[in-house]
Amino acid sequence: MNIFRFLGDISHLSAIIILLLKIWKSRSCAGISGKSQLLFAIVFTTRYLDLFTNFISFYNTSMKVVYVASSYATVWMIYSKFKATYDGNHDTFRVEFLIVPTAILSFLVNHDFTPLEILWTFSIYLESVAILPQLFMVSKTGEAETITSHYLFALGIYRTLYLFNWIWRYQFEEFFDLIAIVAGLVQTVLYCDFFYLYITKVLKGKKLSLPA
């Protein structure tokens, strides 16, 4: 485990906790895309099926369990507990445009044509684009709460840190996974515009708002 991977995991975990706490403390999921959260629940479920087949470490297992459990808790809060505060009118991204192509691609480009491996590949592809409904919602409403911006930054920087982890692993362990690397690059590129706004606005104490 190198420092980039560890910091990536910590930032991913922070993002998940920031979102859970934001919704729970404010008793509201305003400004949060339920569709993106649903996609993340699908991502974790399909990727971590190896919890039942493969043990890597106590760290690995506990993180997976926390990610899966918190993604379901978030979906439950948005679609059940705090349903009245969910802004479905602005959450209009068509998720089938993400699920269908990534599902097809995972059948075509994978490391091994087995059910578990195809599901893992699907989860990698789907994760790379799962934030789009959330980014679409922010661009549609033209603004995001500061706490939501922190959530998005932590979530975006996690995969960026993983890119450095993969460079490290290629250099020192001769390990590389082209599927994860390409998807990770796509995922990071999707956040670039948001990173720019976060650094130029949110870090200077302003609310993230887009020009009309």
Binding site: H12, M63, H111, Y162, N165, L178
Partner: peptide, 10 residues
Amino acid sequence: SVNGLKHDEL
């Protein structure tokens, strides 16, 4: 070699 099958990351 491509060793992507070792899924030891999160």
